[in-house]
Design a protein around this nucleic acid. Structure first.
Length: 879
DNA sequence: ACGTGTAACAT
DNA sequence: ATGTTACA
């Protein structure tokens, strides 16, 4: 009996974790004092009390809990009437059954109100998550897979990330009224929109202007002893001692706890790298070190790590158990792939920065890989301090310095640029309606899901099941790429050559604009009304509703309008630097949501997956760019190139640009603006492959091999030298001398390669490993070959995300890891080929031939050019 | 757990 | 022809 009970307990906990509910022990948080301004950071579920609660923090870093007083219960929606529910014994007789009541819900797919049943339970697991949950026993259910804490958030209109206060014993939003001026401005920018749209705009607006708190926080990093080099300690086993832990706090606290035991095998010593204000506490006992670490952790509401979910916190937890700690002495709780801290929140920044939407849209792709070193180098302009990758041979002082530096730069990831990242996280919480830890853990699909589910609940729409949307799922177009679901964008074939005076016009946020302006949403596409059937999407048989306003369209439209009409504008105009930073963060957060809004509709994993809407969006996009091209040609403007949402126009007159813009606004109802001007553009023969020089001499390079990170440095260098030359070309006349300069650059690098005048690093290819090494079974690409050789020789494991550096050699496998190769064995011909393909992309367009340039070369005749004559450049006379 | 289109290179 | 990577 006892064993069974125990088993059930374990099972329940695992189930809860599966469902994403955090099991935290030792919750003993006070309620916020009356009138105190507190920020809602998470909504959680207390399984012991059977209640949801709000977890909040004040500006001093104190954490509070506010338990549900509305007697809200977990529930699902079903079409089985309440009296029939009561006839199902497994439900009605279950101790978790609370009630089944009739509810009215709007079915957006049919436009009808439905009489449905709300089946309530005492516990979220009774609704779903166990084999015998209620949702498994009913033929049709809705909204049964929404996490209970989210359900509670939406139903109570809670806004994670916003300030609250307790007033007269109950929680309510902290007063935050719009100024009359703001209200008037808002009305102005939403003039002409429907009443519902404006009402929602007023609801959203406070979320975007309310200041984010600078939450007290600390970053933690730990170092573990390893008996040999390149051994990555397993956190679940936690076999080796934690020899050092470091904290860097937003309150300025800097501390390292350092184990001074013989087992650590570290020579004692000072480190010049350790900042003076870091306190190093020497500890003689590992358990004591862990106790101190745990105590410091608990002094901060927000704990930051870089990979703490999978390493640091997991290691500390298991190590503490190994050392005889009781679970209640460890302020950490682990789920399958996440670590939580008691009485606070843990953010694993690795997960946040690895999020593609954050990497690309919020940071413009500033970092490519996801190591702490690479991200901090790109964003903070400084990385990890130089120490050997293994801790072997370090003195205690060096270890402390290394350990502290990691904690410090982890903290800095949240403090740089006026705490940009914290602000971003708060804005994402508010828009997505998710708790802080969920924001950091989930991707754009999860954020959008939550935001749109909340909109459904607010409007009393039934959230459809994916299967309900199957009727809208028929795609009509055929994708060009094998394996894709529907056709995408158009790329206009470039007119190869050099063109002076080019204007680039583009449709800003093309797909979101289409979704808003053409009312695209799962319920409005191919709607049931006969009178809408003539409202066709060009090039398809899809039609769009003219009666209902699409819920997805509204959501996308609001975010787009706020970004373009308010925050981007204000960011530009603002004079107060702090205000400017805020406007910029908001527009970036909105950009993250807006840019991914179309993509999720075409993602099978998105609950409102509607490929027909995604297809209609791209079809409309194709229509927009082709119509624009036609119009431009009718006006006598040559269209040199175009991609998805842009057209490159040759020598257009200013009035023509205005005229085209007005035409687009009027006939397509999408904004078309001049995005860029180029003094000249060089188009290769390939699509997505050109370079443009702006009037200020800045060179934009798109898609050219010379820009790609896998191209060897020696080739890139020559490529960049050519760009330097091109940047200084002002008109057609100057091209002739520029061509001579370029020829010299090509000859020079050619001879450098031929005469082996390079370092190994200069000739290395750098390619990222995207999968585990063992999973490359179909083919073995060169970087995988090199990586396997590296592992075989050094024993150091290589995993996904790591950039493999290798060189091409004669004989053997044809490649070697850069670290294991020598200049003698380099296969020079391979590099000449790489140089050729990279430079030909430019040379061809300039009317130069790579072969001719190197063919006429006599090795001895251009040694003189090696003294760097090509770097300095004036108007073309000297050459 | 966003999408499709284009290109290069190796297998 | 296909797999893999990088980019727009």
């Amino acid at each position: 009996m006892e064993e069974e009970a125990e088993e059930e307990e374990v099972y329940e906990q695992e189930e809860r974790e599966e469902e994403g509910e955090v099991v935290r022990y030792g919750e003993a948080l006070p309620e916020p004092p009356e009138g105190k301004k507190v920020y809602l950071l998470s909504v959680e579920y207390d399984a012991q009390k059977g209640k949801a609660y709000l977890k909040l923090v004040d500006e001093d870093g104190n954490v509070y809990a506010y338990y549900d007083r509305t007697n809200h219960k977990p529930y699902l929606i079903t079409d089985v009437p309440p009296d029939k529910i009561r006839e199902i014994p497994q439900i009605a007789k279950s101790k978790e059954f609370v009630d089944a009541i009739r509810v009215r819900k709007y079915n957006a797919l049919t436009g009808e109100y439905l009489q449905l049943t709300k089946l309530m339970a005492t516990d979220p697991l009774a609704i779903g998550g166990k084999p015998n949950s209620f949702r498994e026993m009913l033929p049709r259910v809705w909204e049964a897979k929404i996490r209970y804490t989210s359900c509670y958030t939406y139903d109570n209109g809670l806004l994670p990330g916003m300030p609250y206060m307790v007033y007269d014993g109950s929680i309510r939003p902290y007063p935050n009224d719009l100024t009359p001026d703001e209200e008037a401005q808002l009305r102005r920018i939403f003039e002409g929109e429907t009443e519902d749209y404006v009402a929602q705009a007023f609801k959203y607006f406070p979320l975007l202007i309310s200041a984010a708190p600078d939450v007290k926080r600390a970053a933690l990093d730990i170092e573990v002893y390893t008996p040999r080099e390149n051994l990555v300690p397993n956190p679940e086993e936690a076999k080796f001692a934690v020899i050092s832990t470091a904290f860097s706090g937003s309150d300025g606290r800097k501390v390292v706890y350092l184990l001074m035991r013989d087992e650590a095998e570290l020579p004692r010593g000072e480190s010049a790298d350790l900042p003076r204000d870091v306190v190093v506490e020497q500890v003689n006992d590992e358990a004591e070190l862990l106790r101190k670490t745990f105590k410091t952790m608990e002094e901060y509401p927000l704990l930051l790590t870089f990979n703490g979910d999978n390493f640091d916190l997991s290691y500390l937890y298991h190590r503490a158990l190994n050392l005889g700690f009781r679970k209640d002495q460890i302020p950490i709780s682990l789920s399958r792939d996440q670590a939580y801290v008691m009485n606070g929140w843990h953010l694993d920044l690795y997960k946040f920065f690895k999020n593609a939407a954050i990497q690309i849209y919020a940071f413009g792709g500033a970092y490519k890989g996801f190591t702490l070193d690479e991200i901090t180098k790109a964003l903070l302009k400084k990385g990890k301090i130089a120490v050997p990758p293994a801790l072997h041979g370090l003195t205690t002082g060096q270890l402390a310095a290394y350990n502290f530096n990691d904690a410090e730069i982890t903290l800095e990831l949240t403090t740089f640029q006026d705490s940009l990242v914290m602000k971003l996280i708060f804005l994402i919480m508010r828009i997505s309606r998710l708790s802080i830890e969920e924001v950091v853990r989930l991707g754009i699909s999860g954020w959008t899901r939550s935001a749109i589910f909340a909109a459904h609940r607010e409007k009393n729409y039934l959230i459809p099941n994916q299967s309900d949307l199957a009727v809208k799922g028929t795609v009509q177009s055929k994708a060009i790429i094998k394996g894709k679901k529907y056709q995408g964008a158009i790329v206009i074939k470039p007119t190869t050559g050099v063109y002076f005076d080019v204007a680039v016009m583009d449709f800003g946020s093309l797909y979101p604009s289409i979704i808003k302006e053409y009312n695209l949403s799962y319920e409005t596409i191919d709607c049931p009304h006969p009178q809408c059937r003539s409202n066709k999407i060009p090039g398809t048989d899809h039609w769009v509703c003219t009666i209902w306003q699409g819920i997805f369209s509204t959501y996308v439209g609001l975010i787009r309008d706020f970004r373009i009409k308010w925050f981007k504008k204000k960011a530009k105009e603002a004079t107060d630097p702090q205000a400017k930073v805020w406007y910029d963060v908001v527009q970036r957060a909105l950009k993250v949501f807006i840019n991914a809004s179309y993509g999720v509709l075409g993602a099978e994993t998105f609950p409102l997956y509607t490929p027909s809407v995604a297809e209609a969006t791209t079809a409309m996009g194709r229509y927009a760019i082709t119509q624009t091209t036609k119009k431009a040609q009718d006006m006598g403007i040559r269209v040199l190139y175009g991609d998805t949402d842009s057209v490159f126009l040759y020598k257009p007159a200013e009035e023509q640009l205005d005229q085209l813009s007005q035409w687009a606004e009027k006939t397509l109802r999408i904004g078309l603006e001049v995005d860029k001007r180029y003094r000249y553009v060089v188009f290769s023969e390939l699509k997505k492959n050109y370079l443009g020089v702006t009037p200020s001499g800045q060179v934009d390079v798109k898609g050219l091999l010379g820009k790609k990170r896998n191209t060897p440095e020696i080739v890139k260098k020559a490529f960049n030298q050519i760009l330097q030359v091109l940047a200084n070309v002002k008109d057609e006349k100057e091209f002739e001398s520029a061509k001579q300069d370029i020829k010299k650059i090509v000859k020079d690098v050619y001879s450098r390669i031929k005469s082996k005048q390079f370092s190994l690093e200069e000739v290395s290819f750098n390619i990222m490993l995207n999968k585990n090494l063992s999973t490359y079974t179909k083919t073995t690409p060169q970087h995988v070959k090199a990586a396997r050789m590296y592992v075989a020789v050094t024993g150091k494991p290589l995993g996904p995300g790591e950039v493999i550096s290798f060189v091409k050699v004669r004989g053997g496998e044809g490649v070697k890891p850069t670290e294991l190769a020598s200049v003698d064995e380099i296969d020079l011909d391979k590099y000449i080929e790489s140089l050729r393909s990279t430079l030909e992309q430019i040379l061809d367009a300039l009317g130069l031939s790579f072969d001719e340039i190197i063919g006429v070369t006599d090795l001895s005749s251009f040694i003189q050019f090696k003294r760097g004559a090509m770097v300095k450049r004036g108007p073309a006379t000297s050459l």
